[in-house]
Amino acid sequence: MPQRLCKIELKEKGIAILEIPGSEATTERQLLEAIRRQITHITDTSEIKGVIVTSSDSHFCTCGIQEYHPSPYTAAELSSFGQQVTFLLEKTGKPCIAAIAGECTGVGLELALACDFIVAESSARFGFPGIEEGRLPFCGGTQRLSRLVGKSKAKEMVFGGELLSAEEGLAIGLINRLYDDNLLSHAQALLEKICTRSPLAIRIGGEVINAGYDIDLQTACMLERDAFALIFSSHDQSEGMQAFLDKRNPDFKGN
């Protein structure tokens, strides 16, 4: 097993940088397993307040040696595993930003799509070129992409396999912010600001957004109403409102 396939580094103010290899010779499964271990670490480490998923290479994970699947069963099994990993990434309960430079394709784009949102440098390119070898996104990418950019844009990307520029990504809502340079410091500043907000509100808010997105309006609003009520038993709510009234910075604890 390759040692330290993905590194995690804890910066100041609780910001963790999760580094995904750019184009290392590893199988998709090994890569996903390494990422899963780091996600578990992120979820379980209370010192980590927020995460930036990025790569120190010139590309963001173009990766993965494709595995030979002797049967549909093993292919479906890898897909379920990949989906499990992206669900775990979505559910760390901590804000998570993907910061992309260079090519972000295949599993790389799948991971970026499972983050809260994506920011990028102008060198970034996005796509699912796997179609050229007859492959499709398999870690939930087809579902997340079409919900994010719309069904027809998702089809254009998956059928065509072409890479989108960063500007195109911004125009269709695939990425939220585009920076000329200093990607990581911009992403870090943004995440630091987010980490000054209530971790409880961010966590519950994120869960309610995900849970409510695919269901009807009335049920989603009821779910939100109950989550809203729950927050009124928390430290963060009384502290946040008192600090606002006192015109001082709140001391949030996430509970």
Binding site: G205, A227, Q237, E239, G240, A243, F244
Partner: peptide, 8 residues
């Protein structure tokens, strides 16, 4: 999130 709540 600035005042410790979500919207209801």
């Amino acid at each position: 999130a600035r005042i410790g709540i979500i919207t209801g």
